[in-house]
Design a protein around this nucleic acid. Structure first.
Lengths: 131, 131
DNA sequence: GCTTGACCTTCCCATAAGGGGAAGGTTTAT
DNA sequence: ATAAACCTTCCCCTTATGGGAAGGTCAAGC
């Protein structure tokens, strides 16, 4: 199966498959005599795994860790859980930062008349009162 | 005032000040005879404005819009409010995505025993059941 | 006056995770 | 046989800077 078919079957673009191979996230794919990569079911399985981890926001290095654990029959689920919890904590911290921005902005926007006059607490808020 | 002092006074690193000048976000700073940039209070004011907008997560193009509105005495607060609301919507969408990841991960992690055994619903969840 | 250290300048490389597109080889279908 | 649809590698682009090199400048101390 060619890279295009593998891409269609997994939702991972051909570009990304090549990139994953280049950074060593996946094993170099087999090649035909003329240099085309070919993929089997096992490769597709791996690509789908990566795709799902990516959808959950894991960064590449952690996906590499997850792949290693996935392949390790002697893994302990504690290791997987620890990775997941670390990632949850990072996501939650990011959420908290964004939420704090939203709160500040909503507060400012609420005070803004939003009409044709130039006076605006939002602009004023950027000017200096707060840090 | 030199770039280092301007950086210390505003919290914007010298690197970033040069970058902002390069991309046209701020006016090119005045220069001494020997080529050093110099900054006055007005420049610092602008840098602090940028710094605060940045802390609220605005991307550079929108900061440029905000700066233009800030300088425009004939602005309408409606324009500022619209920009702010757009940004709030983007932040909230990002939060929703992250929260969805957190929810999924927490659900999986909750089912994971987290002990020395290899069985792990988290890994299994990445393998295929869900999209 | 000279040196030394702390500044400043521009320039180039790197980040994360690929996307876009060029130049050129291969395969498949008509 | 030829054209379309693949594939290959290669290089540049993205965001918003940080790091560091090579070299000019300025202020202080001797």
């Amino acid at each position: 199966m060619n890279i295009g078919q593998a891409a269609a079957a997994t939702g991972v673009t051909a570009k990304r498959i090549r990139y994953y191979e280049q950074i060593g996230l996946i094993e170099p794919a087999g090649r035909t005599g003329s240099g085309y990569r070919h993929f089997d079911e096992r490769d597709l399985h791996t690509l789908r795994f990566i795709q799902r981890a990516r959808h959950l926001g894991f960064p590449m290095p952690k996906i590499a860790n997850l792949l290693a654990l996935w392949r390790d029959q002697n893994r302990s689920s504690a290791d997987v859980k620890r990775l997941a919890k670390e990632h949850i904590a990072e996501l939650e911290q990011k959420i908290a930062e964004l939420q704090s921005m939203v709160d500040t902005l909503k507060h400012l926007a609420h005070q803004c008349s939003g009409d044709e006059r130039p006076d605006c607490p939002i602009i004023a808020g950027f000017e200096g009162e707060q840090s």
